[in-house]
């Protein structure tokens, strides 16, 4: 089962490598990873998606908590939450495809953020299944390059991940 773990950690050099190292060292899988400082610049917030049964996720959570730089860990998938991933895709936009890609982008409420003579860069934000559907909806358009930010997430309502 896919899980989203949110980790609050000290904004210290080496902290990220400890988290990433833990996953490779113990044979856990990272599907996506997103990390940046928070409003409190002594803290970083890391969102990580992984897969595993309850037992494995429990172990991952415990080991994450053991890392000295980690302040808090929450499994967002345990409760109501929102998740967003941002996609940038560079597509060939020539001939009939130029209009077709534009139409598909509009349907998905994406934005074309760069227009070249023969290419577009489309930006799209949403849950990962929406992004996946968009990529397959591009159909015959030639995808030149894809970059995704990785999932960022938060619990809904009053629940707050803070120290």
């Amino acid at each position: 089962m896919r899980r989203i773990l949110s980790v609050l950690m000290e904004n210290e050099p080496g902290a990220l490598s400890r988290v990433v190292g833990l996953f490779s060292q113990r044979g856990y899988n990272i599907e996506s990873l997103n990390v940046a400082p928070t409003a409190d610049n002594t803290l970083s917030r890391l969102t990580l998606t992984t897969t595993g049964d309850d037992l494995k996720i429990e172990q991952i959570t415990k080991h994450l908590n053991k890392i000295i730089d980690v302040v808090k860990v929450v499994d967002l998938t345990e409760g109501a939450h929102v998740e967003r991933d941002t996609l940038l895709v560079k597509v060939r936009a020539e001939g009939a495809q130029r209009d077709e890609v534009k139409r598909t982008t509009d349907i998905f409420r994406g934005n074309i953020i760069d227009v070249g003579p023969a290419t577009y860069i489309v930006q799209l934000t949403g849950p990962i299944d929406k992004l996946d559907s968009f990529l397959s909806a591009l159909g015959e358009a030639e995808i030149l390059e894809v970059v995704r930010s990785g999932v960022a997430g938060m619990a809904r309502g009053e629940k707050v991940l803070t120290i």
Binding site: P13, G14, S17, R18, G21, Q25, I68
Partner: peptide, 16 residues
């Protein structure tokens, strides 16, 4: 050293 010892320490510090 901090990198090479990472999986076998409880914690490590690089003094700055």
């Amino acid at each position: 050293m901090v990198g090479i010892s990472r999986p076998i320490v409880k914690h490590s510090f690089m003094v700055q």
